[in-house]
Design a binder for these strands. Structure first.
Lengths: 105, 105
DNA sequence: CATTCCTGCAACCTGATAGTTGCACATTAG
DNA sequence: CTAATGTGCAACTATCAGGTTGCAGGAATG
């Protein structure tokens, strides 16, 4: 399992989610290609890409002098899994509470 | 749709995820009941509960003088949905790229 | 009524982090 | 070779969020 803390911390920033969105739609891109779409410097984007990659949400592949970032879908599935677990557990608990209430009115 | 920004920002903090975990397992609890499990003051927990509630991940129900917090499973499903969308979109794109590569070798 | 227990401000401290800029280094193109 | 373009490192700033404490106010219990 990729480090939950890092993953959710990375997902916490809206810019980083936009980046994931973009990369998932328009395939592997470089920092310099991405940067113009955001109201901030290329360096800022590089940092964001760094934390996304650090969390395992992105992979880098070097092509000559540029570095392309691509989505790692598995990491996001794991995060989705955590959310699913919690809500499922709560649903079960709700059902259990419900039975209990009906039993002792 | 609940505000994505708020939801993911809320999920970004490990303490808050632990709280969700706990609440999903042990049902609706008050801040004072939760607090002893964490290495911080009750007030800190109250703040966390506040942001979780603000993001729509928790609901509050008042019972006399105490306030119980309960999980709102739907909100988490929505967040899981976003993650699912992104990774699905990427998978489709990967498949498309793959076809293209096979077509022009 | 007096006490106790829980909630709910508000002010404050502090560390992390999202940004910035400037420059050095590498690789492609002319 | 030289110019142009892209990556990478570092230092610095400022905002914000997590945490603290202190206290005021409401509701239950004896």
């Amino acid at each position: 399992m990729a480090d939950d803390d890092a993953v959710f911390a990375a997902l916490g920033d809206p810019t980083r989610r936009r980046i994931l969105d973009r990369l998932s739609a328009d395939g592997p891109l470089t920092a310099t290609e991405l940067a113009p779409d955001y109201p901030m410097s290329r360096q800022a984007i590089v940092k964001h890409l760094g934390t996304l990659a650090g969390a395992g949400l992105l992979m880098t592949e070097r092509v000559g002098r540029d570095v392309r970032y691509r989505v790692r879908a598995e990491a996001m599935s794991e995060a989705a899994g955590w959310l699913g677990d919690v809500s499922a557990r709560w649903d079960r608990r709700l059902a259990a509470l419900d039975r209990q209430v009906r039993k002792e009115p």
